[in-house]
Write a protein that binds this DNA or RNA. Structure first.
Length: 352
DNA sequence: AAGTCGGGGAC
DNA sequence: GTCCCAGACTT
């Protein structure tokens, strides 16, 4: 990119954003931003954590429910972790919720309830890494920041027609992103990049005809926009198998447990069962001796493996420690995998 | 540098 | 079915 291209990039992008900005619940309009208004840092922070590896469509309703329940750092800091995890259930990557709660406590206790505005102070908070620190500094506090997420990587790779895999070109991508950041309107610029990546410079079928920065785009000039970024070879997921046991009590209550605080589904409500292994066939893990009946099999795909779990159920009288009852009305507190298993068991038992 | 850590929407 | 998303954290 030439020197004039660098200026033109941010100028064109900001002009486009002024006309086409998406309206999102955690955003203020570009007009308000230009008038000096800033969004609520709590909402910016919450949205950024929720949006980590999660789509806007998924986040939008969950964001609304969350801020309705806890409207600021002090309220969230006072909430029991268990309730925060329950509100997060179904969103995945549950360490985000644990770190979210820890972060709210730190902000309330050590920062007087105010989110710090500097990128370095933000990055020291739980759950806030390089991207999120830059994004919050820019969006909530209008700082100049080099915001690099998946969208920005894709945009920069196409602008410069970088033909190496993203993983190998991180430094060059960051350098280019840093070169084109404007000195003003840090928040609008960061969000403009997100909108461009989501609606124009999409992973598949980029809409170059509508792109405000196509004149500086090398990939478009070379007709390579659909081939870039080059994808790394995909590795296949192994399948692990196991058994989930659903004890069914009065009124369709299911026998539940709290999972270990860290690791897969850490701290979340779950259902007892065998270990999940590639061999499978392990009959251990039942919460008690009973004539367990088959309720079918559920499939669930996680990041690193695919699960095939046999669901078994049995009528259950009491809840032996450390187990406890989860009524149907609280199925929303289960991660999706366990909610699937509970539904399968209750269906087989005629409780649904 | 490589693994761990979920789920769903879009195709 | 595949892709990939406003990544962080651990080893």
């Amino acid at each position: 990119m030439t020197r004039s291209d660098k200026t033109a990039f941010s100028t064109s992008l900001l002009e486009w954003y002024d006309r086409h900005a998406r309206q999102l619940p955690w955003r203020i309009s570009p007009a308000a931003s230009r008038a000096g208004v800033r969004p609520d840092p709590y909402r910016v922070w919450l949205s950024e954590i929720m949006l980590q590896q999660t789509t806007v469509a998924t986040v939008t309703p969950r964001f609304a429910a969350f801020v309705q329940r806890w409207d600021g750092f002090p309220a969230l800091a006072e909430a029991p972790l268990e309730e925060v995890l329950g509100e997060w259930a179904g969103l995945g990557y549950y360490s985000r919720a644990r770190n979210l709660h820890a972060c709210a406590k730190v902000v309330t206790r050590l920062h007087d309830g105010q989110l710090p505005a500097s990128e370095s102070a933000l990055k020291d908070l739980p759950g806030i890494g390089p991207y999120t620190a830059a994004a919050i500094a820019a969006i909530a506090f209008d700082r100049r920041a080099v915001v690099v997420d998946g969208n920005v990587e894709r945009i920069m790779v196409r602008q410069a027609a970088i033909e190496r895999p993203i993983k190998e070109a991180k430094a060059a991508i960051y350098a280019l992103a840093a070169e084109v950041v404007p000195d003003r309107r840090g928040g609008d610029y960061a969000q403009a990049l997100m909108d461009l990546g989501a609606t124009i410079c999409r992973p598949r079928r980029p809409d170059c005809l509508l792109c405000p920065v196509r004149s500086s785009c090398r990939a478009h000039a070379l007709g390579l926009e659909a081939q870039l970024p080059v994808k790394p070879p995909k590795k296949k997921r192994p399948t692990r198998r196991g058994i989930i046991y659903v004890g069914i009590g009065p009124r369709g209550c299911v026998l539940s447990e709290t999972r270990p605080a860290k690791g897969l589904f850490g701290g979340m409500r779950g259902l007892p069962g065998s270990a999940w292994t590639e061999e499978g066939g392990d009959e251990e893990g039942a919460p008690f001796e009973a004539d367990w009946q088959c309720a079918g099999r559920i499939s669930h795909t996680l990041t690193h493996f695919h699960l095939e779990l046999d669901v078994k159920w049995a009528p259950t009288e009491g809840a032996p420690a450390p187990f406890f009852w989860t009524p149907i009305a609280e199925h929303g507190a289960f991660p999706t995998l366990f909610r699937k298993a509970a539904v399968a068991a209750l269906s087989a038992a005629g409780e649904l």
